[in-house]
Each structure stands twice: as structure tokens, then as C-alpha cells.
Amino acid sequence: MPITVEHVTHFLTAAAALIHERRDELTALDAAIGDADHGANLDRGFTAVMARLPSVADKDIGTVLKTTGMTIVSTVGGASGPLYGTAFVRAGMALADRHELSTEEVLLALEAALDGIVARGKAQRGEKTMVDALAPAIEALRAALAAGEPLGRALQAAADAAEGGAKATIPMLALKGRASYLGERSIGHQDPGATSTAYLLRALAMTCSRVEEGA
């Protein structure tokens, strides 16, 4: 069963719920090595996305994702606003006019999202940012699909990899974003942006698994 615009809406709804649920945890992570706003930032953004969604519910998937990205840019601010905003806009551009997605197109969209984040933020892997969650997730997804896993299972693997990537930021020295100002003191804390990325992938995996089970 292919991914439709409805599934994308479900994914965004699940993402908004998960971010809201984890808001205080994300803020606490940001308090340790940043400025204690990451949870509030994303929660504000996804709340705005939820409010905008009905107005594009009858549009193609590309439009939904682009609208999501632009809404995030317009409401989140901070570093994560332009980064996640660009990610969703780029994913949307990669899926312009599409009403149904193949498995490959999901991978394509995530790759476009990562490219957007890197274009905007210039972070490499290992610099203790959201890239350290998204990049391994994409690798895991690619590997699982190549091994013939169904999309839901492959995305579960991607979400696991994102979570592992987020955990792996703990011993890293931050070289990008606010945490870099702490120097050595950034070591020993999990990056908030990598953590929120893992939650977004978890929401995506959950939605697609349900699609498959429903199939």
C-alpha cells in the first residue's frame, strides 16, 4: 500500500504529539549545553503546523511538506527553525506534485531533507548536531531497503539508528551551534537537536508501520 497525503498528515500529527510530549525533556537537554528553548521552539512550530494542515489537506504531498517547512521557518526561530524548516521544504520540493509515494521516494525525501540541513547549517557528522541522528538513519534505511525489508520495518531500523546516533552525540565535542561555546564542557551531554530528529523519525516509522499493518 503506497503512502498517501493522509499518511503524511498522520506522520505530522504523530510528530507534533511526540514533540509536545517530549517538550520538557528537549528543553532540559538544551539547558545543559544550550539555552533551554529547544522543546518550546519545536512545540510552538508543530502546533502552528497542526493549525495550517487543514488548509492544505487536499493538496499534493510536496505542497503539504513545503507548507510544513515554511510554517516551521515562520514560527520556530533559533537554529532549529531554519534547519528543520529547510529540511521539510527540500523534502517537499523533492516530492512536488506527488499524491502517492513509493518506498524509494521516501528515501529520496529524507536525503533531500539532510541535504537541506547541511546546506543551511554546514555541519559535518561528528559535530554534535541533528545531522548525527539523520545521517545514520538514512544509511540504515538505505541498507534495509536494499536488503528487501518492507518500508515500515526499514523505517523502524532508521528510527533505531537515529536514536543510536542521538545517544552517540553524548561523548562528542560540539563544533556547531550554541553548544560549541561550552568547549570541552559540551562533552557528556546528548544533543537536543539530534534527539528531536530521532523523535521525528520514530513518528515516521510508527505511521508507516501502521500503514503496512493496515495493508
Binding site: T27, A28, A31, A32, I33, G34, D35, A36, D37, G39, A40, R178, Y181, L182, G183, R185
Partner: peptide, 25 residues
């Protein structure tokens, strides 16, 4: 956030802070 960005003992200070309530160097 509702909670302070970091905690400091009565005899401690943070040196090399920015302006965002973040810990210093």
C-alpha cells in the same frame, strides 16, 4: 523552561558566559 539553565553553589561563579543563560566556559 521554568527552571534555571544551570546551578551554581554559593561559592561558585561561571566565567565566559554568553547572554542566553547558558553555562560559561
Amino acid at each position: 523552561a521554568g527552571k534555571p539553565g544551570f546551578e551554581l553553589a554559593e561559592d561558585e561563579m561561571e566565567v565566559g558566559i554568553g547572554i542566553h543563560g547558558e553555562p560559561g566556559r
